[in-house]
Design a protein around this nucleic acid. Structure first.
Length: 937
RNA sequence: GCGAGAGUAGCCGAGUCGGUCAAAGGCGCUGGAUUUAGGGUCCAGUCGUGUAGACGUUCGCAGGUUCGAAUCCUGCCUCUCGCACCA
């Protein structure tokens, strides 16, 4: 927009128009094919397009773009591809909710994500959702200037990709890394599906605990007691039953058991046949005798605290080692009942006497079962016994075993010899599915697992991690921990979108398992779409990715060309993702690469991002705490969004988006623009030009180094604020009336290129304004020119800068209007002192050393003072400057004489420059090297 | 609870093989300048004290090591991420 005086006015509209023009020039500019150049291949975790992009997503894709643009300018052949992960079930849930008119979901999509009504109407089809948002993602990513090769875009449910996944898993299956196994899962009988923690209304932190049933023989039936401590069977004194609960007799796997109704229900979910044949009140069983071969006969005692919803609803009592049992028994005995029962110790543990439970309870001063300290005491006793306890002689052949060993051994014995079964339950209740129904533990025995627990596979991944380039390096420990911690991973699901398991079509590969080696697929994605999917048999992929076999179905020349493209790009250089994926995706993909690809095609590096905040709070679509990326681009412009996201924190740090801080970023871009446009016309030469040119070389080096290390924020600091502050000083130092020399044009040329990776739209435009042909996106990255480095000039300016600051700070304090300033320059002997101190091994003894010198000694106290002052000064100067001063001492007189008119203009006062020894003023003695004494009158 | 990481001025953040540190840079704020239409540009200040470039007190809290610690050690507190069949 142009105002009435013909000046350009920057508004949202003009920015958008300018950006659209540049985006047009880029439309196909980043399509990348193998070339003579060295390749640089980066990938980012692809998005799941179930909603609109927000500014948090923005950073995830902008930071890699900055890196891609940087290396492209450095002359590499850069590939930055993108695809969409649509595997899984979330969109199915979304589409169902929309179809049934769920208000919350519809509001989210219509009002927050701004989906048009006619599109929303189609969202009852899950595919419509991912298609809509995939297109929106591409549009917004282009809008933000991401230099992506869009020819390679795909989704994870296209037939070709499914064929690729089938190939991947045919290898894993052949290697026996995919095996069938039984696994307890959280399960909702209402939804008839396993439920993940995110599917739960309540109890999402509940863990599945594996109990063992210890079966006591009663009169005609068995009573199982669930326990985590089967070794304590030797110390059982009684059973606890809740007299107020109705139990059931049920035939379970052909044997009659007595359990709570809840337990019967749970058992039926855990691969047991259950048929209820009778009901009995708990009270009716109180007093009856039961027996177990390892404990002998014991009595059933009443205990109202027994929860029918825990375990079997009947508990075995070991009062010597379980504080709850001890207290319960004591309470009964204090009423005069069952006084013949005495605790039976079976474990000895250091730090406790014969009956640990009793001791711990008494030590803690606990009076009854309701004492809140009970859990703590229980934990204490269990912990002590588990880590240090040993079994006593009454345990027969198990005597002397550590508890941790005996526990497993007895569990096995129980299962093998005494008809015990494993029983799974949650450690906390309740666990409620989102549908409102209660969730249970269910055993799925036809589930497919990836064998991440395989120690050999783990070791291979550990080895890979140790040779990976990781940014930041601190995440290495977390990767190693994750590898250690991983167990077998259930890699299939019954419902959702995705690829069917080729050898078991009842199952689909779940999303984290079909997204581990797709970085290889990108390399051929745009060309494989020409091959009919039915021709894409595993041997075709073997040929492309592994160089093996002799596939007949596809033209060999095409396959050879695909293979050579794959080999050109692979292995990838860096993979980018947020840190929350370390514990699954990022580690999984290492496992899979290791299993599928040869040594020379393994991942080389990863960059792990921090998380994003919006106005200090976590970004969350469901809570409405998001700012859409497209809205941000509309309001501030794409470059502003990019610069803000890059500048607020380094990639691995968490960042916070605050709208009120973003607008100042735009002013900075405007300042750059106006500077560069001024710079176009600059000509001639001034005295400070060589200084500016020298500084520019340093900024180039610093910016380059920062980007090589993925320090995008640091790069911005150097490339933008660093150069800007140099320019401020330069302009201040220009002779009156000068607008600057031709060096400004050099700076503009370099500046635009240094910032091009971060604010490419603006720089593309400015590059043209500077008269260059072609895209700045492919311009040559600035190289520092050593010939333009001028340490002497930089040192001289440094001296002037420091002196100006000193003068300013004095003037600020003293309440007088200066009429004259005298600078007294340090005598040469003080430079000698400076040299000695600066180069001394031990600065504490330099005084002694110096005083050995005749001429120094003759200066007496003055010399001693000078040593102290100089030492302090040296400590306050950058070490590099100190070295510089020593090796190349400045000619202070010449420097200040040359700067005389500048100083007088700055302070509007007359200056005099004199050697300190020629001044009689008391302050003249303060003169130090690089720090003249200042006398203001 | 377990594992990984982090705590620096109003905010974001440099700095962490001990002395370059009252602590870069940015933002915000304050004051000033400006033929400044506008959220513009420029200059200065922004822990406290101070009539000379200084001094005092600071880097989550409490101790310790050292001539000297934001930086090293110990304990504690707080925050972030992950803890699985889910993107």
């Amino acid at each position: 927009m142009i105002n009435c005086e013909g000046e350009l006015i920057v508004t949202e509209d003009t920015i958008q128009m300018a950006e659209a023009e540049v985006a047009g020039a880029w439309k196909r500019a980043f399509e990348s094919d193998p070339s003579e150049k060295e390749k640089y291949y980066i990938t980012v975790a692809y998005p799941y397009p179930s909603g609109a992009m927000h500014v948090g997503h923005g950073r995830t894709y902008i930071v890699p773009d900055v890196i891609a643009r940087f290396w492209r300018m450095r002359g590499k052949q850069v590939l930055y591809p993108m695809a969409f992960h649509v595997t899984g079930s979330p969109v199915i849930g979304i589409s169902k909710r929309i179809a049934r008119g769920d208000e919350k979901t519809i509001t989210l999509y219509r009002d927050l994500y701004k989906v048009p009504e006619d599109v929303l109407a189609r969202f009852s089809d899950p595919l419509a959702i991912v298609e809509h948002f995939s297109d929106e993602y591409e549009r917004v990513m282009r809008r933000l200037g991401l230099s992506i090769d869009w020819r390679r875009r795909f989704t994870t449910i296209i037939p070709q990709y499914s064929k690729f996944i089938e190939w991947q898993y045919s290898h894993l299956y052949a290697q026996e890394r995919v095996v069938r196994g039984a696994h307890p899962v959280k399960y909702c009988p209402q939804c008839e599906n396993p439920v993940g923690d995110h599917d739960l209304l309540e109890g999402d932190r509940a863990e599945v605990v594996k109990f063992i049933f210890v079966n006591f023989q009663a009169d005609g039936f068995l009573i199982p007691c669930a326990t985590l401590r089967p070794e304590t069977i030797f110390g059982v004194t009684n059973l606890w039953i809740n007299p107020d609960v109705r139990y059931v007799k049920a035939e379970i796997d052909g044997v009659v058991w007595l359990v709570s109704r809840e337990a019967a229900e749970k058992l039926s979910m855990q691969k047991h046949t259950v048929s209820i044949i009778d009901e009995i009140n708990g009270a009716d069983l109180v007093g009856s005798m039961v027996s177990h071969p390892l404990s002998g006969k014991v009595q059933i005692l009443p205990a109202p605290f027994v929860d029918p919803d825990m375990g079997s609803g009947v508990v075995m009592s070991v009062p010597a080692h379980a504080p709850y049992d001890y207290i319960a028994l004591r309470d009964l005995q204090q009423k005069g009942e069952y006084t013949d029962i005495v605790p039976i110790p079976l474990i000895s543990v250091d730090g406790y006497g014969a009956v640990p439970a009793q001791e711990a309870v008494e030590r803690a001063g606990i009076h009854d079962q309701l004492d809140p300290k009970m859990d703590e005491v229980t934990q204490e006793v269990y912990g002590a016994e588990f880590t240090r306890g040993k079994l006593l002689p009454l345990c027969g052949e198990h005597e002397g075993k550590p508890v941790r060993v005996a526990r497993d051994d007895l569990g096995d014995v129980m299962e093998r010899d005494y008809g015990s079964i494993r029983f799974f339950d949650f450690d906390t209740q309740p666990v409620i599915c989102r549908c409102g129904s209660r969730a249970y533990v269910r055993i799925l025995d036809d589930q497919w697992f990836l064998t991440y627990s395989d120690p050999i596979w783990k070791q291979q991944v550990h080895d890979q991690i140790s040779s990976l380039s990781l940014v930041p390096p601190e995440v290495r420990a977390e990767f190693d921990r994750t590898v250690d911690w991983l167990k077998d991973w259930a890699c299939t699901r019954r419902v959702g979108l995705g690829t069917r398991v080729p050898w078991d079509s009842n199952w689909l590969f779940e999303p984290l398992s079909d997204s581990t080696v797709y970085m290889a697929y990108y390399t051929i994605a745009h060309r494989i779409s020409d091959i009919p999917p039915e021709s894409l048999t595993p041997d075709v992929f073997d040929y492309i990715f592994l160089g093996k076999g002799d596939p007949k179905g596809v033209d060999r020349q095409l396959l050879d060309s695909l293979r050579s493209e794959f080999l050109y790009w692979y292995p990838y250089n860096y993979r980018f993702s947020a840190k929350d994926l370390i514990s699954n995706h990022l580690t999984f993909q290492l496992f899979h690469h290791r299993a599928i690809f040869p040594d020379d095609l393994q991942p080389e590096g990863m960059v792990v991002f921090g998380m994003g905040l919006l106005n200090g709070a976590k970004m969350s679509s469901s809570k409405g705490n998001v700012f859409l990326l497209e809205d941000a681009a509309d309001e501030f412009g794409a470059d502003t969004v990019r610069m803000f996201l890059v500048g607020s924190a380094e990639p691995w740090q968490d960042f916070d988006w605050r709208n009120e801080l973003v607008s100042s970023t735009r002013k900075q871009i405007e300042r750059l623009t106006s500077y560069v446009q001024d710079g176009v016309l600059s000509a001639g030469e001034t005295g400070v030009d060589s200084w500016l040119a020298s500084r520019l070389q340093r900024r180039i080096v610093q910016t380059t180094t920062a980007l090589e290390l993925f320090q995008t924020r640091q790069a911005l600091q150097e490339a933008y604020f660093g150069i800007e502050s140099d320019l401020k000083w330069y302009r201040r130092r220009l002779p009156a009336g000068s607008d600057g020399g031709a060096v400004m044009r050099q700076v503009a040329d370099a500046w635009v290129r240094l910032l091009a990776p971060i604010i490419p739209f603006t720089c593309e435009k400015l590059w043209g304004d500077l008269g260059h042909e072609g895209l700045v996106s492919y311009a040559e990255w600035p190289l520092p020119d050593a010939a333009l480095l001028n340490p002497a000039v930089e040192q001289a300016e440094d001296l002037i800068m420091r002196t100006v600051e000193d003068i300013e700070s004095i003037i600020r304090i003293i309440p007088m209007t200066p009429s004259k300033v005298t600078l007294c320059l340090a005598p040469s002997w003080k430079y000698d002192v400076f040299n000695v101190v600066a180069t001394a091994e031990d600065r504490r003894v330099v005084t002694k050393e110096l005083m050995k010198d005749e001429s120094m000694r003759s200066l007496g106290k003055e010399a001693v003072n000078a040593v102290n002052q100089v030492t302090k000064l040296i400590h306050s100067l950058p070490p590099q400057l100190v070295t510089e001063i020593v090796s190349n001492p400045p000619d202070e007189l010449a420097i200040f004489t040359q700067a005389l008119s500048f100083l007088e203009e700055e302070f509007k006062v007359a200056f005099e420059i004199v050697p300190a020894e020629e001044s009689t003023h008391a302050k003249a003695g303060m003169a130090l090297p690089f720090k003249p004494a200042i006398i203001i009158e």
